[in-house]
Amino acid sequence: MQIRVHSYESMGTFDGPGLRYVVFLQGCPFRCLYCANPDTIDAVGESTLTDAEHIVKQAVSFKPFFGKRGGITFSGGEPTVQAKALIPLFKRLKEEGIHICVDSNGAIWNNDVEELWKLTDLVMLDIKEFNNDRHQYITGRSNEQPLKTAAWFEANNHPFWLRYVLVPGVSNFDEDLHALGAHFKDYTQLQRIELLPYHTLGVHKYEALGWEYKLKDVPVNTPEQKQHAEEILRHYFNDKLVVN
């Protein structure tokens, strides 16, 4: 099967442990208001149909740079949109001894996705908001399945990271941060929590697509806002919390 690839990053340092070969895939069921890659949302977009073996060869060529911690990361878009096509690719990567990481919103679940997770070494799970109403405002979808996906990781001893973007007036409510912490604080498979600042680096892409950026009046986080959110989450996660 061929895979719809949007783009690549040869030596990523923010998409999992160590140095990563990052493959950005096409297609996503979410419509996040602050999406940094809106050009990956459409199922086709400007993607290129790519043979799995091409990706394997590229990953193998970077293997000397991975060391003990690095590997390949699939991002997007939402990689699980193409779960069926990714399964044979992941099997080939496992044969080559390459660490596989997936950056996912956890919103899709079917037999192919479950098999894909079993072939994945680490998942970076993006929880957009713990409050379901606010999650639907941000993404257009419920957070029920992402939370079920996290529960599946915990029940099946599957390591994952949690990523949370702090958006002023959108996802920085104290009660929601406390609820998030209380929900996940006892998860043994949750290795790391990343608190990510809101940024507007993808706004020019909306302009290029002719789309309205609906958070244009939302400012970036102040140092005080980031520190306050960090203090709340640090109470639940201690040194598992990483603030970017």
Rank of each mutant, 00 (worst) to 15 (best):
Q2L: 15
H6K: 12
F14V: 15
G27Q: 00
C28D: 02
C32Y: 03
N37F: 03
N37W: 05
N37D: 11
D39M: 11
I41S: 02
D42A: 14
E46W: 10
T48V: 14
L49S: 13
D51V: 10
A52E: 12
A52W: 04
I55W: 01
F66P: 03
T73R: 02
P79F: 01
Q82L: 03
A83L: 06
K84H: 12
L86I: 06
I87W: 04
P88I: 09
L89R: 01
L89W: 00
G97F: 12
I98Q: 05
I100D: 03
C101I: 09
C101F: 12
C101W: 04
V102F: 03
D103L: 08
S104M: 06
N105H: 06
I108K: 00
W109S: 02
N110H: 08
N110G: 04
E115I: 08
L116Y: 04
L119E: 10
L122F: 12
L122M: 13
M124S: 12
N132E: 13
D133N: 13
G140Y: 09
R141M: 15
E144P: 02
Q145L: 05
P146K: 01
W152F: 06
N156F: 10
N157C: 14
N157A: 15
H158T: 12
P159K: 07
R163Q: 09
R163G: 05
P168C: 07
P168N: 07
G169D: 05
S171G: 03
N172F: 03
F173T: 01
F173Q: 04
D174E: 13
D176R: 03
G181K: 05
T188S: 15
L195M: 05
H199R: 11
L201E: 08
L201W: 13
G202S: 09
V203I: 11
Y206M: 08
E207F: 12
G210A: 11
W211I: 13
L215W: 02
D217L: 09
V220M: 15
Q225Y: 04
H228V: 03
E231M: 14
E231G: 10
L233Q: 00
Y236I: 06
F237S: 02
N238P: 07
L241A: 02
V242A: 07
V243E: 02
V243N: 01
